[in-house]
Design a protein around this nucleic acid. Sequence first.
DNA 1: TACTAATTACGGTGG
DNA 2: GTAATTAGTA
Length: 751
Amino acid sequence: MNTHLERFLHTQLNKPQQQAVTHQDGPLLIIAGAGSGKTRVITARIAYLMHNLKINATSIVALTFTNKAAREMRERITHFIEQGPMPFIGTFHAYCLLMLKKYFHEHPFTIIDSDDQEKIIKQQLEKRNQSKELSARAVVHQLSLLRNKYIGHEQIKHATVGNQVLHELYIAYEKEKKICNYLDFDDLLIKTVQLLKTDSRFQQQVCRQLTHILVDEYQDTNVIQHELIKQLSMHNLTGNQAHVCVVGDEDQSIYSWRGATVTNMQTFTTDFPNTTILKIEQNYRSMESILAVANALIEHNSQRVHKILWSDKKGKNRAINLISGSDYQETDRIVNALKAFKNKYRLSTNAILYRTHTQSRILEEALIKKGVAYRIVGGTQFYERAEIKDLLAYLKLLVNPFDRISFFRVLNTPARGLGPKCEELCKELWGKEPFLTVHELLEKIVVDKLLPNSKLYTIQHFSSFFVNLSGLTPSTVAIETILERTQYIAYIKATYKEENATERIENIKELLSAAKHFENEGHHTITQFLEEIALLNEKITAAKESNDAVLLMTLHAAKGLEFDFVCISGVEEQILPTSRSQHDTEALEEERRLLYVGITRAKEFLILSCAKSRFMFGTPSRQFSSRFFDNIPKELLPSFDSSYWTERQTEQFFNQWFAQATFTESTQKTVISQAAIKNTLNANKTNQNDVKQNSAQAYKTIFKKNQKVRHPIYGIGTIQTVDSSSNLKQYAEVKFFSGVKKIITTFLEPA
DNA sequence: TACTAATTACGGTGG
DNA sequence: GTAATTAGTA
Ligand SMILES: Nc1ncnc2c1ncn2[C@@H]1O[C@H](COP(=O)(O)OP(=O)(O)OP(=O)(O)O)[C@@H](O)[C@H]1O
């Protein structure tokens, strides 16, 4: 018996949690607020099942929607289960892929991402001369919603009746995928559910041993995932329904844009009769002053069941609203805050969260400049980079010779004279004979001499790239051979500038080391490699968590995680809530939940940050603080406008906030707002030296007419005139978005 | 016919 | 800032 676990069960869980962990009769639905220990229940329950009830690892499956949340679960479980087999813990998509890989062998398949989906639709739209009026992206999204909402091809098709265009596009899209042996992400779920319903052998193999199913973040599941759980629970050998345990929080539902519906939680009891419902309202994560902010905010949503979370962690003044003059200033302030907190907390317990990936760029710049280690989670992802996609396309062709998207991607990359005309010819031939492989098609072009001789030689050369390689070739060999034969590195060097080229070559090396990594794990062939990376988006780094770094990620990605210090950047109108949700109450409520999720990630300290101006799509824009601030009483969330603070003052501010807050456990009466304001005011009077020092330093920077410069408040501008007549100060007239301003050059830096 | 350089369009959260 | 598109050239 694992005494560590025993002790944990008795001392580290409250009553409802214990009940949830040990519950054995029928389905279980746990509705509990943020930070109330839902994930802890799931992980402890898995450990309990394995240790106390001696359930096999293979009989347990734990699912969730995002990679990050899945990883969090997996890591927490390793605290209980050090060795021996682990149950499957991962995303719905990963689980379905695994099942298809193991038990579905009718034909090999290639997994396509949303880029590829858009390409297929775009082609269809072009065929129909509608590529101008409809965006491929919108169509893909539309189809995805339907395919996640309706079960089975017929139902989906039926759902498109009434929209002739969508109907036809759906049919054409499905047909194209079939010809190319493609499965998109939605298909992983669709196919699995379909097989579970119709293929008794598949059903047997998948469900035979399955007796316990656990789902985290249930509020973010969509109809087909709900159906999957149902199917999975029905067919094990015991003849009884598998034990289903799901946990969720309606207030954290942030994926409705991809079909997630809290209805799944509301109707859970009807789909799973005799469900026991448990509720937990104690929050163990956040200081109560942070939780108060979250509670106040979420109260403003109309579509929710009233609940108030409470916390025992007494700490005052832990949440503030920080206002900056510009986005650049905002990032500087954030870095300052990080530096102040660094002494107590490891960097990796800090996170900067934002609404959109694009916001990360400017943060990244500031962090590099100030030498703070950081790690961006998600974002422009490794496997989305052009050079990686090119190489993977060659590899995918080895595995699936019907893969047209990959074929057209590499046919003329590196450029070899097989341009649009050649592409046109291929499409025409495939129109006539859809079931030709890429190689058969090229063969036909050569044999029938459908292009001038010089081109035919090029085609033969292209075909020779694939000779002696197959899906069974070891990954590294295949990658190296393709690199060699296509002269890909030389092409990169010739096409891109020095820096850019080396970066791309680095990425290619990274891909090679990922291949080596998987070879060492026993996935030797290129087929296996592609399967392994199909659902990945980040690169594989050997020592992932070892280097301590601040985490940067979207609010969506942060769900299910927790950090000592959280800073949410860009809490502004147009960003959070996003401009697209302005007039849609439901969408606005989801934005509010998104902020709620962000706030409730913080354990000790929280900054909601906004700037008065920001570069949006390359142009500067006046920003207004988010309407959500109006939902939070000022007493709970004091505001500080830092627009005119010097760096010294900023440091002092954060140091003081931090120092004061750390001893709030004792009766602490001064509120930070007073103390901090006093402090900043004093600093303003006494810190003249700062300015002088700065000016002496900055005077060395020579500013010229037409030079692009950056100002902490006005952002980027162009110098019109420079006035160096005074020997104390240098002035410059700078043209900003907001107009021409006369500025002391001390405040400028080259942009 | 294809390549290169210049111009223009576009931009949300994830698997 | 990037990707797709377009105009101009080999
Ligand atoms: N009974 C408990 N006693 C002490 N600490 C607890 C208890 N239950 C949970 N915690 C701690 O509270 C924090 C939040 O728990 P957990 O992440 O499981 O919550 P959650 O409900 O999954 O949160 P969210 O829904 O926000 O993702 C964790 O640090 C966890 O270790």
